[in-house]
Design a protein around this nucleic acid. Structure first.
Length: 161
DNA sequence: GCCAACGTTGGC
DNA sequence: GCCAACGTTGGC
């Protein structure tokens, strides 16, 4: 059994780039390419066992579609060192990495995706960062009550404890 | 495809 | 250190 979660979050991805189906296929992946300091700071607060809503952006409709679990501590994002890659950061060094990632594993897909409209319409979810107009953060913290509420709305099986 | 939001860059 | 220009995200 994984350790109990202490924090909750939401990770965004475009379904045709890397969607929940890709994570189910891979079972586990390094959540790389986060290049925003606010998102990075949220990521750095995550530890093994923490639970994440998996959100499809640029989708029709945009929606929370399932749950992933954090399965590693934050560690340097290897893509920052790859001079040929799109995510190369010339200011980063092995001694002083600039960007980090966590490994995540597939937990479940919701029987019913919870659309952005549904998230916005539910008064119990007021204040969820993903519903904020103009929000562009790809990793956001989520309150435990909000996490549990979204799982319930999606008909998910994930229980916090 | 448009555009609002907002982070980053670079001239000064 | 200010701020205009620019680039990116992501909903619509």
């Amino acid at each position: 059994m994984p350790p109990e979660p202490t924090r909750f979050g939401l990770i965004k991805s475009e379904p045709h780039v890397y969607g929940l189906d890709h994570l189910r296929r891979d079972k586990r992946t390094a959540w790389e390419n986060i290049r925003n300091h606010q998102a990075k700071n949220t990521l750095m607060s995550f530890g093994v066992g923490d639970l994440l809503l998996f959100y499809h952006s640029n989708a029709d409709p945009p929606a929370a579609v399932g749950v992933a679990r954090v399965v590693s501590a934050p560690h340097p994002d290897e893509t920052q060192f790859d001079a040929r890659g799109d995510y190369f950061d010339p200011t980063a060094t092995r001694e002083k990495p600039r960007w980090f990632c966590v490994d995540v594993e597939f937990v479940e897909e919701f029987p019913k995706p919870v659309s952005l409209d549904a998230l916005k319409a539910d008064s119990a979810l007021a204040g969820m960062l993903v519903t904020r107009k103009g929000n562009r953060l790809s990793v956001t913290p989520v309150e435990q009550a909000h996490f549990e509420r979204v799982v319930a709305m999606g008909g998910g099986k994930t229980r916090v404890r």
